[in-house]
C-alpha cells in the first residue's frame, strides 16, 4: 500500500475546489465545479472517501471528520458564489426582470357587467331570466299594461313605430305580460334587454338602451315583500350602509307605484367618508290588477310587484361616467378599463 496522507489530500482538495468556485463565472460552470468536487459518484471528495477503506481503522474517525469539514467548506463556498452569480452579470444569463410574453386581454362591456352584477343578486334571491321580442305590439307595450294610447302617460315614452300596431318596445315591461301568459305563478323573473325611445343622442339619452325588468307574481305577495326585496337588492348592490327610500310615483301598470332612491356612503382614499345625494335607481310598484287580469290571472287571488331599471344609468353612477354615449362609442381604451 502506498504512503497516502488522506488529510493532506483533503486539504489540497479544499484549496483547489475553493479556487475553482471563485473562478466560476456563471451558474453552469459553478454546477460543473460542484459535480467535479462533490458529485456523489464521480466527485473527487467521494473518491477520497472511497479510499477510506485503506486507511487504518484508528485514523478513520479523524479522516472522516476532516472530510466532513472540507465538504462543508466547499458547499459553503458554492452557496456564496451562487448568490453572487444570481445577478445577471454574466453575458449568457437570463434577466428575469424582462417583461413576460403576454396574450391579449379582452373584457365584457361595462353595461353587461352591470347587468350581470344585478342578475347575480336577483339570482341569489330566487329569480330567473326571461326574454321577449324587441319589436312588439301596441297591446303588449301599452294596452295590456293598463296604458291607453290616448292617455298622457303614453306620451312620456315617445315611441318608435314599425307598422301600424307594431313598435319597438319602449320598455322591457312587455316581458311581464309574455312571461305571465307562458307560465303559471309563482313567477320571479328579471328581463334584461334593449328598449327604444324616440330620443336624440345626448349625455343622458340614447334612442336605444338597456333596461332590466323585474316581476314577482304569486298568492300573498304584498307591498312589504316588494319593499323588502328591493331594499335587500339595493343594499347588496350599493353596499350594506346604503339608505334606501321609496318615493310615491306613477306608472300606469303599477299601483301603488314608487321610485326607489339610494343614498350611499362613499369612502375616500384618505379614509374619510361622505354621503351622496339621493340617487334615483328604478321605477317600481305593485302590479296593477288590470295587468294581472289582462294576463288571464285572477287579480283577487294573485298579487305581485314589478320594477324597471337602467343598467346604463347605474353604470354611469357607479363608474363616474359623465356621458352615456361613451358606452356606445366603444373606444377600446375605455373598454380596457373594465377588463378586470
Amino acid at each position: 500500500m502506498s504512503e497516502s496522507n488522506p488529510i493532506a489530500d483533503l486539504r489540497a482538495l479544499e484549496e483547489e475546489a475553493t479556487a475553482a468556485v471563485k473562478s466560476a463565472q456563471n451558474r453552469e460552470s459553478l454546477e460543473e465545479v460542484r459535480v467535479t468536487y462533490l458529485g456523489r459518484s464521480e466527485g473527487r471528495l467521494s473518491a477520497i472517501l472511497r479510499g477510506l477503506a485503506q486507511v487504518p481503522v484508528e485514523r478513520r474517525p479523524e479522516v472522516g471528520k476532516s472530510a466532513n469539514t472540507v465538504k462543508a467548506k466547499i458547499s459553503r463556498a458554492l452557496e456564496m458564489r451562487q448568490l453572487e452569480l444570481v445577478a445577471p452579470s454574466a453575458e449568457n444569463e437570463v434577466d428575469l426582470t424582462m417583461p413576460g410574453r403576454p396574450r391579449w386581454r379582452g373584457g365584457l362591456h361595462p353595461i353587461t357587467q352591470a347587468v350581470d352584477e344585478i342578475w347575480h343578486i336577483f339570482r341569489d334571491l330566487g329569480f330567473a331570466r326571461a326574454r321577449g321580442p324587441e319589436a312588439d305590439t301596441v297591446w303588449y307595450n301599452f294596452e295590456a299594461l293598463n296604458t291607453p294610447l290616448d292617455h298622457p302617460a303614453a306620451d312620456e315614452q315617445d315611441t318608435l313605430y314599425l307598422v301600424d300596431s307594431v313598435l319597438l318596445r319602449s320598455h322591457t315591461s312587455p316581458v311581464q305580460m309574455r312571461t305571465m301568459e307562458a307560465n303559471e305563478p309563482p313567477i320571479r323573473i328579471i328581463a334584461p334587454g334593449w328598449v327604444y325611445r324616440r330620443d336624440t343622442y345626448d349625455a343622458t339619452h340614447t334612442p336605444a338602451f338597456m333596461q332590466i325588468e323585474g316581476l314577482v307574481i304569486d298568492e300573498g305577495i304584498t307591498f312589504v315583500d316588494f319593499k323588502a326585496t328591493l331594499a335587500e337588492f339595493a343594499r347588496r348592490y350599493w353596499g350594506p350602509d346604503t339608505q334606501v327610500r321609496f318615493r310615491p310615483s306613477y306608472f300606469p301598470f303599477t299601483e301603488p307605484s314608487a321610485e326607489v332612491d339610494v343614498k350611499r356612503i362613499i369612502t375616500r382614499p384618505d379614509g374619510t367618508q361622505y354621503e351622496t345625494e339621493w340617487l334615483e335607481i328604478m321605477g317600481s310598484g305593485m302590479v296593477d290588477p288590470n295587468v294581472i287580469a289582462n294576463a288571464g290571472y285572477d287579480p283577487e287571488r294573485y298579487t305581485g310587484w314589478a320594477f324597471g331599471m337602467g343598467p346604463g344609468r347605474i353604470a354611469m353612477l357607479k363608474h363616474g361616467v359623465q356621458d352615456l354615449r361613451t358606452f356606445f362609442e366603444n373606444d377600446v381604451r375605455f373598454l380596457e378599463q373594465f377588463a378586470r
Partner: peptide, 20 residues
C-alpha cells in the same frame, strides 16, 4: 308613508320560470 312600512324579507316560493 312608504317609509313607514316594514321591509323584512319573508319566505318566498321558488319561481316556476327557468332561466332562459
Amino acid at each position: 308613508g312608504f317609509d313607514n312600512f316594514p321591509d323584512t324579507l319573508g319566505p318566498q316560493r321558488a319561481s316556476s320560470v327557468s332561466d332562459h
